[in-house]
Design a protein around this nucleic acid. Structure first.
Length: 467
RNA sequence: GGUCCCAUCGUCUAGUGGUUAGGACACCGGCCUUUCACGUCGGUAACAGGGGUUCAAGUCCCCUUGGGAUCACCA
């Protein structure tokens, strides 16, 4: 049995957006699951709109998500001679013809047809023109599509879809300037690259019958199609910038982990029983294109956030420390100086939903001379506080080892000795150490900060209260 | 407007003729607790409407309604 070949074919006119990323993911998953090949092809036949920056951005996005490709990236712009050859083949076979109608003429006809409530389709003026020598007039090449019959296919996601050929018109396959058009080029590329399965956005459903007709005219096998539904914004309109970030890399910059993105994207339209958490590796076993839903789905940032929190919570602290470092730099923190970043991360993991929050939460560990939260200070720094803090410092100093257990012992000791509750000293210590009223656990902070820094901060608080 | 596609809680979804219609996010409450979180327990919440078929319909068929895609010498 021959192996499956899938491809992701973005056009480089912008960054990799979440919709494209999901399409790429589905392609990648199916290729991996069936031990096939995953090919990356850049659709840059529109030379004017394509940019190298976009290509780079797309590759960066895929790499970040962990979607590697086996072949490519191939560039359509490098294949122009090949496309010309196929156009000529069709011309020679009488399956395509030159059309001399001008764009303006066509536009006028379309408008007229629309106005009269008719179909804005090519009227076939040049379809039956006798073959003639070039007389220098500009022309496009049109595909001579069958005018009767039905074209249909069984879509892996949507099931059987049929179109009446009458509804289709003779599409342009080569422009006046000699460059090929999209619908033609995809077919040639998918055919010559032996693509067996085409997974793409369902905005291509209407192009599919024309493409199938082209495959047939060319006498090459028609691939299997799977059209994945669109991703919508909260207002059920197609997802766009006004719904928030759509660029995959923007999510990295907002502190999202790639595994959260992958997990979220795959669950958008696909499910596996009641399971919610999937790694890329799980997915290569569990994913199936047939169980992708047929309807469009709304992008839900809350759920993405929840997944991100999950992956931060359960993530490897060493890796997270590496990932958070640039965000700390942005905050003017050099994590080389101060408590070990890995230990710091551990105290913050279950409190942060994004790497940004993790970074924000870590800043106090590395700052000295921070302000005390005003309300917190008013409430928790009392006249009796300095004495308690002094006692704490003394007891801490006497500790042989600084760990959670010994620190807890110190606090219990103080409470017993003074006949107070933890609530009468804890919040003050929290404020003294972090400057805020919301922080990691007190014992954790002390252990993470270390003896010297802890005592320094406590002393500073004492001085501040007595000032 | 033509063509094509779609329709279960607010959202993502399970469900393939017989279910108290399940799970997850969000939301609301209880518990846990040194703060914030985490965790945990519980709750509110859905088969768009109408016709059929059938002993039985969220599940099959038709219509209506609603949504989306597309109708380029863009991809």
């Amino acid at each position: 049995m021959s192996q499956v070949r899938l491809r992701f074919a973005p056009s480089p006119t912008g960054y990799l957006h979440v919709g494209g990323a999901r399409t790429a993911l589905f392609n990648w998953l199916l290729a991996r699951k069936q031990q096939g090949r995953f090919i990356l092809r850049i659709e840059d036949t529109d030379v004017a709109r394509s940019t190298q920056e976009s290509v780079d951005a797309i590759l960066e996005g895929m790499t970040w998500l962990g979607l590697d490709w086996d072949e490519g990236p191939f560039y359509q712009s490098e294949n122009f001679p090949l496309y010309k050859e196929y156009v000529q083949k069709l011309l020679d076979a009488g399956k395509a013809y030159k059309c001399y109608c001008s764009a303006e003429e066509l536009e006028a006809k379309r408008e007229k047809a629309m106005k009269e409530g008719g179909k804005p389709k090519y009227d076939g003026t040049c379809r039956n023109l006798p073959p003639q020598e070039d007389d220098g007039r500009p022309y496009v090449v049109r595909f001579k599509a069958p005018q009767e019959g039905t074209t249909s296919w069984v879509d892996l996601i949507k099931g059987k879809i049929s179109f009446e050929n009458v509804e289709l018109d003779d599409l342009i396959i080569q422009r006046t300037d000699g460059t090929p058009t999209y619908n033609f080029v995809v077919v040639i590329d998918d055919a010559t690259m032996n693509i067996t399965t085409v997974i793409r956005g369902d905005d291509h459903v209407n192009n599919t019958p024309r493409q199938i007709l082209l495959y047939e005219a060319l006498g090459v096998p028609v691939p299997t199609f799977a059209h994945v539904p669109m991703i919508l914004g909260a207002d059920k309109a197609r997802l766009s910038k006004r719904h928030g970030a759509t660029s995959v890399m923007a999510y990295r910059d907002m502190g999202f982990l790639p595994e959260a993105m992958v997990n979220y994207l795959v669950r958008l339209g696909w499910s596996f029983g009641d399971e919610e958490i999937f790694s890329l590796e799980d997915l290569t076993q569990k994913f199936s294109i047939e169980s992708v839903g047929r309807s469009a789905s709304v992008f839900n940032p809350d759920k993405l956030l929840w997944l991100n929190a999950h992956y931060i919570k359960t993530g490897d602290p060493v890796r997270l420390a590496g990932l958070v470092t640039p965000f700390l730099k942005e905050r003017g923190v050099d994590s080389e100086k101060g408590p070990g970043l890995v230990a710091v991360v551990k105290t913050l993991q279950e409190r942060a939903k994004t790497m940004l929050e993790l970074a924000d939460g870590a800043v106090f560990y590395y700052k000295d001379g921070f302000e005390y939260d005003e309300k917190g200070a008013a409430k928790n720094f009392n006249p009796e506080t300095p004495a308690l803090l002094e006692l704490l410092n003394a007891k801490l100093e006497g500790l042989a080892t600084l760990d959670m257990e010994s620190v807890e012992g110190v606090f219990k000791g103080i409470c017993e000795e003074k006949g107070i509750k933890l609530g009468q000293i804890g919040p003050a210590v929290r404020l003294a150490l972090s400057g805020t009223t919301a922080s990691p656990g007190i014992y954790e902070m002390i252990v993470t900060l270390g003896m010297a820094e802890t005592r320094k901060r406590i002393e500073r608080a004492m001085a501040w209260i007595r000032r």
